[in-house]
Design a protein around this nucleic acid. Structure first.
Lengths: 190, 190
DNA sequence: AAAATAATGTGATGTAGGTCACATCAAAAT
DNA sequence: ATTTTGATGTGACCTACATCACATTATTTT
């Protein structure tokens, strides 16, 4: 698990054993059960979470109680309420587990400490953020330019593993379609 | 103009005169006329652009020729085709001027050089990227959870200056509504 | 200042996708 | 193993919003 995390970082920067141990010492492992919440609206948010195993979702409920999914996170992904974490305001989203999961917690404080002490890791986090920015832009373009069935196909292309783990009604809530419509898109196989 | 740019950076980090001059020496000013293109699909993209004055838009055309706006950029904003820039692939968006504009160009190469030579500026760009990430997440939530008229109100709240510069049909293309629907939302004043 | 071009408003009509209702099937929980 | 709870499918109907068409009013361009 530790080596898996190291590989994740070493996709972007290379590390000595001492550097990795130093970095790793700032993280706290946490085991979570299905349905367990990490964040609820109103909470103060101190951590970013790196997913070692399992699957989580970040979402909001609208005024009719309908769920809208901002983000999934599987193995290898980072997730939290970034608005709350970065701006120091209360959470506006729910973050919970779709299945039993393990995460590594990193407080914002420790992240900033790491970044100021180790230039390399600041490079890592900058690259991660840049990559995330591009991914979000692509999702916005997908929402603006594509129909429900096109968006479904795009998501399937991009993250096929997701469809093994996540019920289709959650896929629908991520794509911005009703579960009924998503089901019909399938049967009609457009 | 130069001091305006310096202020922009000093909102996040503080600089000595030498440091600022060093940073500024990596930027190239460029004047642009209304309708002028900075990027078209297929182009290779080497620069990020910081807007000194004017207003630009980044957009795609869908298969029916309809425009969908990914991003506006007014004074103080950064804009480019980030996917193309970061991944080193060809552009997939148009970037052009809504009015006469002035920008500062920074090549990716120079940005990376700056970041490796001056830890402070890497901090700056990391914070910028984090902020941008949060803004995009909020836009996705807005697209998922809100109706056309709610999205209009949210945008008006967030960037009132935008409505002085940008014709409503472009606002519509940003919100993901037809210009006719946007016009009707107004008259009905929901 | 005139001509050309772009922006906006508004009616009539079309449609993708939403909502509601209920049936079936799968998976947890006791 | 049985009960409870959640996931999926499908029909009937509804509604935001899109599209098309044309009139009106700004804003550029020459």
């Amino acid at each position: 698990m530790k080596s898996f995390f190291r590989q994740h970082i070493e996709k972007i920067i290379s590390l000595t054993d001492e550097e990795f141990d130093f970095i790793y010492s700032h993280f706290t492992p946490k085991k979570l059960r299905k349905h367990q919440f990490l964040i609820e609206p109103g909470d103060s948010v101190v951590n970013d979470y790196f997913v070692l195993s399992g699957c989580l979702k970040a979402y909001q409920l609208d005024k009719n109680g309908k769920m809208h999914i901002l983000q999934f996170a599987m193995q290898d992904w980072w997730i939290t309420d970034y608005q709350a974490l970065y701006k120091g305001i209360n959470a506006t989203i729910f973050l919970d587990c779709i299945e039993d999961s393990e995460v590594l917690c990193l407080s914002l404080h420790d992240r900033e400490k790491l970044c100021s002490e180790l230039h390399k890791i600041e490079f890592f986090f900058r690259k991660k953020s840049n990559g995330g920015y591009v991914a979000l832009q692509q999702r916005i373009l997908s929402l603006l330019t594509s129909s429900a069935s096109e968006r479904y196909e795009q998501l399937l292309q991009l993250y096929p593993q997701l469809f093994q783990k996540v019920p289709k009604q959650l896929i629908a809530a991520y794509l911005g379609v009703s579960r009924e419509t998503l089901s019909r898109l399938h049967s009609q196989a457009k």
